[in-house]
């Protein structure tokens, strides 16, 4: 959805004004993010409710590998920095740096997702499957949704780099980069919450 939201630039008001002086796309993106708060809120609440309910399989505090997750959290946090540098390069019309930072952001994101895949497989080996317990189901659902969001972000970043190379980005390039940046940072702040509530606070 985010993809469609950002790639779309309205033209109906062409030559007309915009009542608030703000860009339609950016307003739309912020609203989408506001709405996503309710989505992740629901998933986090479900996890909070169910994290202690372990009929079989490992307990949360037994299975989490805090040092490992700390590193991948750090990676995602730093990808926010590279993203904001890409946005700032785009606003300066510094295309070379923009591309560079976008690619680095995507790579950091991919590292995070790779870490998550590794984490999931090792949890699975230790006996925590999707259906093992309510803790397992809600944990995989929450972090899985987050992982999907990161992956969608990576696809958007790569698409952005590719389309930029062929000069196929419709509309204002700096704005498109900024919008994808907003999405990316949002995914990062969701992880800030998940990292604390899920990993650091034991059940």
């Amino acid at each position: 959805m985010a993809e469609t939201a950002i790639s779309h630039d309205h033209d109906a008001s062409h030559g007309a004004h915009s009542s608030t002086g703000l860009s339609n796309n950016k307003l739309g993106m912020w609203m989408f993010l506001g709405s996503e708060c309710l989505l992740f809120g629901g998933l986090i609440s479900t996890y909070m409710l169910y994290k202690g309910r372990v009929n079989s399989g490992p307990q949360p505090n037994k299975i989490f590998d805090i040092p490992f997750t700390s590193v991948s959290s750090f990676v995602l946090l730093m990808s926010s920095l590279t993203m904001v540098l890409a946005v700032s390069a785009a606003q300066r019309k510094d295309e070379r740096n923009m591309n560079l930072w976008l690619i680095i952001t995507a790579l950091l994101g991919a590292t995070f997702v790779g870490g998550q895949v590794y984490e999931f497989t090792s949890f699975y080996r230790e006996g925590l499957g999707f259906t093992t317990s309510l803790f397992g189901s809600s944990f995989y659902t929450l972090t899985g949704f987050h992982g999907v969001h990161v992956s969608v972000g990576i696809i958007m970043l790569m698409a952005l780099v590719g389309m930029n190379r062929n000069n196929r980005i419709p509309g204002d390039r700096a704005e498109v980069v900024e919008l994808i940046g907003l999405y990316w940072h949002f995914v990062d702040i969701v992880w800030i919450v998940i990292f604390t509530l899920v990993y650091l606070i034991p059940s």
Binding site: L39, G42, T46, T141
Partner: peptide, 22 residues
Amino acid sequence: AIPVITVALFLLTFQRSFGATF
């Protein structure tokens, strides 16, 4: 409101199609 029902529907789909027990 839509994201809230989205969560609920996903949980139910996961329960019915993928064996979760929400």
